[in-house]
Amino acid sequence: MSANVIPLRPRAEEPSLQPMLALTADGMNAVNSVILDRMQSRIPLIPALAGHLIAGGGKRMRPMLTLAGAALCGYQGSRHYKLAAAVEFIHTATLLHDDVVDGSELRRGKATANMVFGNPATVLVGDFLFTRSFELMVEDGSLKVLKILSNASSVISEGEVDQLTAQRQIETSEERYLSIIGAKTAALFAAATRIAAVVAEKSEAEERALEDYGRNLGIAFQLVDDAMDYDSDSGEMGKGKGDDFREGKMTLPVILAYARGTEEEREFWRAAIGGHRTSDADLAHAVELIGRHDTVNATRERARHFAQRAIDAIAGFPAGAARSAMAEAAEFAVYRRF
């Protein structure tokens, strides 16, 4: 997986997610209806806990990608609504589990489900949402869709475990970091987009093109998420600033700062990532070092490379509102501040 740098280019105006939102607005209403219906249970705690996260906002990028991909392929049916809901359930389940693993206290600016309902209930409701996603896939009836989404679910889990084993490992390479985010984040982006071509009965080449778009967009998206942990306040991010730092996660801003730093700076990073320097003052020093070596901007430049790859992947599809919205969404992934 290449990590070539494409410098951020100046723009007359910031790219926006609005074209994507407009393109998928009607479809997302249908998807949200499926989500609301399928998160219900005779056990009241399940919809209460699931609703705590699902109603908490978020960009809903993954189901939007399924809808946008369907529009790009000219699909006129309705199968993609349930499948987009299945994608969102997979994503929501992983978020619930991640917050337990990380001991997170904030998600999208509000208390995490594990802080409100406790870890056991949060894990079990995450499991419930996974099962709901597979029920929706089975109802669709396509073994190919089932294979794509079930494989993505396995890859996500592998990526999360790989990230856990890399935690507090200061020697984590950029290559391994890209492999981790390619699994834990980009795999679902790729699957969400590819299944649109499957339901539209497009060629294998078109399936792969949409898959490539989603995967590269997902990598760009996660790179910028990791940059923002050292570049935004918690109000913008919707989580506590410095969470990655305190959890000892080797994200690209830190990997680059460590590589570019003096021996004294490296000694600080070894102690910090090892869990021995995690105070507010230590976080401030980490941010200062990252600023000194301009690694937030360097991370966004790498994200720009993957965003361009995403845009290039769909160049063979007909020009129009769908392709334009998807291209601007890739640009937005790089320049966003939230």
Rank of each mutant, 00 (worst) to 15 (best):
V145N: 10
T66G: 05
E207R: 07
D312F: 00
V254M: 03
L67T: 01
A325V: 10
R260N: 13
G182I: 03
D243F: 00
A303E: 01
L23T: 12
V334A: 07
I54E: 07
A209P: 05
T165Q: 11
M137V: 13
T251A: 12
A197G: 14
D102E: 10
L65G: 01
V161I: 15
K59S: 06
V123E: 07
R292F: 13
T193V: 06
V5A: 06
A196G: 06
A25V: 09
E247Q: 15
I273F: 00
A272Q: 11
K110D: 05
T278Q: 14
A329F: 13
L136F: 05
P47K: 01
A259E: 15
G126R: 00
G159M: 00
L252A: 06
A313C: 06
S78H: 13
T112S: 13
P15Q: 01
R107A: 12
R107G: 10
G235Q: 13
G159L: 00
L124E: 07
E204Y: 02
A25Y: 08
D231G: 14
R277Y: 08
A327C: 14
A257F: 08
M326Q: 02
A315K: 12
F189R: 05
V125E: 10
L146Q: 09
A121R: 02
T295K: 12
F134E: 09
G58R: 03
R108E: 10
I90W: 06
D212V: 01
R323S: 13
D98M: 04
